[in-house]
Structure formats: structure tokens, C-alpha cells
């Protein structure tokens, strides 16, 4: 269902005057959650930028009820809340809103547990690719070559592919999204909210402070991540992987925007810019992403592969 902007009522979905940095992708993302799902939502937020964005008591700068919780157990706290709501006969959507560290590192065990139990919660990882709140330290989701305050010469290892790991959990719904394409994110949120069980959405959240780019480019970088093929948008539902509309054009390498367009505006890749050899490391990340997509697409949708073979043979 395409999202028509003029159809949205003229209400404030966000909560102005919060503590987020200018150009923050997380407040953008949270606003889209409100647009997509409305008021019957409760957030669980582990330590991270979003725990600070709320600002100071007695006001909260995020427009949702929130259980802030310790870093490692956001998913479990959400499972508890959901169980309570269910026993009270309510179908409130409980969403974990966590960063990449709270998802892929310290919170991973709890998330994996909730996914394995197929608890009826939604888990959104707002991935800004480092521990931004503590001052830009590398996480397992920091991409290859990126500068952080704990990888001064650029990260040597590749980004952990959390969405694929969640697909391996065989949960009912996994999707990737970015604040660069809000319509796509809103669609996926709405679809996920209708599914019973564990839903995972990986939201790429370009961060002007940690990635060192001009804050006006947050949305643009979200789009470039998709257009370069580095961050493919897809959904995995009922065992079937589908590449999302905004990414389809870029599965062909020749259609992709050159990766240099993405990295040259980000200060964190200054090292890469000096050494073109290293850019290959990032290009490998792109290839790896699409390799997995190809494998899953073919295995989950054999008839379309057959059709393609027929087409190619004609």
C-alpha cells in the first residue's frame, strides 16, 4: 500500500524540544513509528542514544509510553510487558527500540531468546553503526574501514549481519529499512504490526555526529546506502525473501551508485578515501549482502528461479 503524505492528519507525531542532536535519524525513525502505528504502542528502550533523547524528567521527548531498561535485557522486558498486556486482554504493540550495540552486542542474547520463543513483540534496531551515545566506539555493526574512537585507523572487521541472523531464527517477519525511505519503513511497520510473533526490523540510521557528515544529509545518506547496494532493503516473511521496491534497481551492480559517492561525504571514511585499496573491503560487504539475498531468494522461491531460467534460455 503506497503511503500518501497528504492523507496523514495534521498532528504532531514527534515530540519537539528533545535532547537529540540536529539531524538525528532516531527521532526521524520514532516519528515514523508513530505515523505507522498510532497510539496503542509501548516502547522498551535499553541504554543508548534514545535513552538520552528523551531529555529530563518530568518531561519525555519521545512521544510514546516507555519502559527504559538496562542495556542487556530490552527484549526480555518487552516479552514481560507483552505477556502482561495479553493476560489483561489488551493487544498493545510492544516494541523494543534499541541501537546496534543493544541489539547485536550486549542485547543479543536476550533478543535471540525472545526470537526463539517467538514472543509477540516487535524489535527495531536503529542501527547507527557504533556506540554513539558514549562517544562513537566501534560495535560489531560498525562497517569495515569506518573510523571510531576505538578504531582510529578504520575497523578491520566486517559488519555483523543481524537481519540475516534473525532470518536464521525463522521468526515470522524480518525486514530492513532506512530513514531515507520513510514510506517503505512505514509500510513494513504496518505489515509487521499485523503479524503475531516476533518481528524484526533493521533500520539503518545514518548519524551525522558519528559518521561525520552534514546534518542536512541524514535522509540522503539513508538513500545512498540503498542506492550503492550497501544496505539492501528486503523483507523476509513466511520463509520467503523479497527485495523491496526501492532496492530492486540496485541488485544489478552496473545500476548502483558508485560507493565513493556514499563514503566521500562521511568523515569516518577519511582513511578509505586515502587508500583506494581499502575501498574494496567495503565493496566486498556489498557483494556479501547480495550473495545472501540471492541464496535466500532462490531457495525460498524456486518457481521464480525456474521462470528466470526459462526466460534466460529463450
Amino acid at each position: 500500500m503506497p503511503v500518501r503524505l497528504a492523507d496523514f492528519p495534521r498532528v504532531r507525531y514527534g515530540m519537539p524540544g528533545n535532547a537529540a542532536c540536529p539531524g538525528c535519524p532516531e527521532t526521524m525513525g520514532l516519528r515514523y513509528v508513530k505515523m505507522a502505528l498510532g497510539d496503542d504502542v509501548v516502547l522498551v528502550i535499553p541504554a543508548g542514544c534514545s535513552s538520552v533523547i528523551q531529555g529530563y524528567t518530568p518531561k519525555s521527548g519521545i512521544n510514546f509510553p516507555i519502559l527504559n531498561i538496562v542495556f542487556a535485557s530490552a527484549a526480555s522486558a518487552a516479552s514481560g510487558m507483552q505477556a502482561a498486556f495479553e493476560s489483561q486482554g489488551k493487544d498493545t504493540t510492544v516494541i523494543v527500540w534499541a541501537g546496534d550495540g543493544g541489539t547485536g552486542d550486549i542485547g543479543f542474547q536476550a533478543m535471540s531468546g525472545a526470537a526463539e520463543r517467538n514472543d509477540n513483540i516487535m524489535y527495531i534496531c536503529a542501527d547507527n553503526e557504533a556506540y554513539m551515545n558514549t562517544g562513537i566506539q566501534r560495535s560489531s555493526l560498525t562497517p569495515y574501514g569506518a573510523w571510531t574512537t576505538t578504531t582510529w585507523t578504520g575497523k578491520k572487521e566486517h559488519k555483523k549481519n543481524i537481519p540475516m541472523i534473525m532470518i536464521a531464527h525463522e521468526v515470522p517477519y524480518v525486514a530492513t529499512a532506512t530513514v531515507g525511505y520513510p514510506q517503505d519503513f512505514i509500510d513494513k511497520l504496518r505489515k509487521a504490526a499485523k503479524i503475531k510473533g516476533f518481528k524484526y526490523i533493521h533500520l539503518l540510521a545514518p548519524d551525522p555526529v558519528g559518521w561525520k557528515f552534514d546534518p542536512s544529509l541524514t535522509a540522503k545518506l539513508g538513500q545512498l546506502a540503498v542506492q550503492t547496494g550497501l544496505f539492501p532493503l528486503y523483507e523476509y516473511e513466511n520463509g520467503k525473501l523479497t527485495v523491496s521496491v526501492f532496492s530492486r534497481l540496485y541488485r544489478k551492480p552496473e545500476k548502483r551508485v558508485p560507493i565513493i559517492e556514499y563514503i566521500k561525504v562521511q568523515g569516518r571514511y577519511a582513511q578509505l578515501m586515502k587508500d583506494p585499496e581499502k575501498i574494496k573491503g567495503l565493496e566486498e560487504e556489498i557483494e556479501r549482502q547480495w550473495k545472501w539475498i540471492d541464496i535466500l531468494e532462490k531457495s525460498s522461491n524456486p518457481s521464480s528461479v525456474a521462470q528466470q531460467i526459462i526466460k534466460e534460455n529463450k
Binding site: 507525531y13 514527534g14 537529540a20 535519524p25 526521524m28 544529509l217 535522509a219
Partner: peptide, 26 residues
């Protein structure tokens, strides 16, 4: 707008809530 500080009039012409706009330029 990350801050929800772009507002819409009845005719969908936009204006800015300068009390809270952080000036990111998005």
C-alpha cells in the same frame, strides 16, 4: 523533519516551529 517542527496549514502549505527547530537543514 526529525523534530516535527515543520507544520502544515489547512492547505498543506508548510511553516516552521522556530521554538524547537534545531536547524539541521534536512
Amino acid at each position: 523533519c526529525p523534530e516535527d517542527t515543520i507544520l502544515r496549514r489547512e492547505d498543506d502549505m508548510v511553516y516552521v516551529d522556530y521554538d524547537y527547530c534545531k536547524g539541521c537543514g534536512i
